[in-house]
Computed example of a mutant assay.
Amino acid sequence: MTDNVIIAIGRQCGSGGHEIGMRLAKKLDIPLYDHNLVAMAAKELDISEEAAREVDETALSSFLASYITGPGDYVAYMNAEDYMRPLSERVYKAQSGIIRRLAGRSPCVIVGRCADYVLQDCPNCVSVFICADKEDRIKRIAQLQELPERKAAEKIKKIDRERKYYYETNTGEDWGKASSYQLVLNVSRLGLNKSVDILASLFESLGQ
């Protein structure tokens, strides 16, 4: 397994975890992998990016579990073995392989996609979970997506439930539980900038 330093970020919806990942990657001048992993997995599986996005960090509907969307927005049967495997499982497996290859290529920041679990054998992979107080998360999503706070709260609950299901189904570990990670940062207490500084310092210390 690679000796590159990898920061694998799990996050609550609305905590600012994605923004922390972006700021950290920019500060360290290293690649950030997040939503772009969906496009990579879709290309590897030869399916539409839309189909891959439907099951990225979400629970899969029973209908999509049996079918796979191909190029041109049509539904195509796979071979017998693939037909029996849900699309979500295939996307997860493809993303996991891509994550391992990218981690072996260079230091990087990876947001979500069970990267901490996928890279658990990497000696310099730092698994961090970003959280924040519920009120702060609601305000952040309401502001970013121009939603009433009630709608923002509902969206946060839905996305966190899906991320928890995705993570625990694929890893067998507890999503968001402190003991599942090396580091937990509460953005409500630290702020975005301080959180980035802490992770940057840790990255630099491991890279020496």
Rank of each mutant, 00 (worst) to 15 (best):
A59H: 05
M84V: 10
V118M: 05
S61W: 09
M84W: 13
F203M: 01
Y67K: 04
G16Q: 01
A178Q: 02
P148Q: 00
R113H: 10
S205I: 08
D160F: 11
R189N: 09
G72N: 11
R101C: 05
D3E: 14
A76I: 15
E57G: 05
V38Q: 05
M78K: 07
I7E: 10
P123A: 07
I9Y: 13
I20G: 11
D197P: 09
G70I: 15
I130M: 14
V109T: 06
L185T: 01
L185H: 04
E204Q: 12
K26G: 15
I141S: 07
L60G: 12
Q145M: 14
A59L: 10
N4D: 03
A41P: 08
S15A: 15
L45Y: 12
A8E: 01
S15V: 09
H35Y: 11
I47R: 02
E204S: 11
L119M: 03
G207E: 10
L144C: 12
A200Y: 12
K139T: 01
C13W: 14
R113I: 08
L147H: 05
G70P: 00
I138M: 03
S61C: 10
A8G: 07
A132L: 08
E146L: 12
V55F: 13
E49I: 13
Y181E: 01
E81A: 13
R53I: 00
A200P: 05
K151L: 12
P31N: 03
L206Q: 08
C114F: 04
A41Y: 08
N186I: 05
Q208R: 14
R100T: 03
V118C: 09
F129R: 00
D46K: 14
Y167P: 02
A76R: 08
I198N: 06
S62E: 12
D34C: 08
D82T: 04
Q182W: 04
